[in-house]
């Protein structure tokens, strides 16, 4: 048996092992960016839990609102107290699924584009979302990433008229996670 055939067999066998397993991280990223002529506001949370079932394509994401870090303490205070009201609604939660599992082959290393649909709960308001995501499979990892927009009004986040020019109506969101096998 030549060397390349052995390597091929190892890759295929290890990839088969990935099916039916749950992959996860507790160090996922969730960031958002609001751009207006007056001000740019950026925040990120690097302690986001992502759990993904590779056999069904189900994805659960949970983030604590108070873990979003802003450049300025005042922005962070306003975000938690006035907008997402984190003492009442401490978490942002996404529960969804890859629409078409035939487009993603977790058995094989590669980069796959797929739509993920599900429900996003922010500020106690749950809305359906359908987003384009990229899954990079390889080396026992699944790197998942998506960019999408969230409208503040959709989640009943009210922005005072005096700050309408400072905060975008539609916020750019980036979600990114390096998932590894959940071993129990």
């Amino acid at each position: 048996m030549n060397k390349s055939l052995i390597i091929f067999c190892i890759v295929v066998l290890s990839s088969f092992q990935m099916m039916g397993q749950k992959f996860f991280t507790r160090n996922g990223h969730l960031g958002f960016f609001s751009k207006t002529n007056m001000e740019d506001i950026k925040a990120s949370n690097e302690s986001v839990t992502y759990i993904m079932d590779l056999s069904t394509g189900e994805i659960n994401i949970s983030a604590l609102q108070t873990n979003f870090q802003f450049e300025k303490a005042l922005m962070q205070e306003h975000y938690n107290e006035n907008y997402v009201e984190s003492s009442k609604f401490p978490k942002a939660i996404f529960k969804g699924k890859i629409d078409d599992m035939s487009k993603v082959n977790f058995k094989m290393e590669g980069v796959y584009n797929a739509k993920v649909s599900g429900n996003l709960e922010i500020h106690g308001v749950t809305k359906p979302y359908s987003v384009d995501a990229v899954f990079k499979v390889g080396g026992g990892h699944v790197l998942a990433e998506t960019n999408f927009k969230v409208k503040c009004a959709d989640h009943n986040i009210k922005i005072e008229s005096s700050l309408k020019n400072n905060i975008a109506e539609s916020i750019d969101v980036n979600a990114k996670a390096d998932l590894t096998e959940l071993k129990k």
Binding site: T49, I51, N60
Partner: peptide, 11 residues
Amino acid sequence: AGYIPDDTGLL
């Protein structure tokens, strides 16, 4: 910052 429960029962 709070608590993230384990909805899967695995983690």
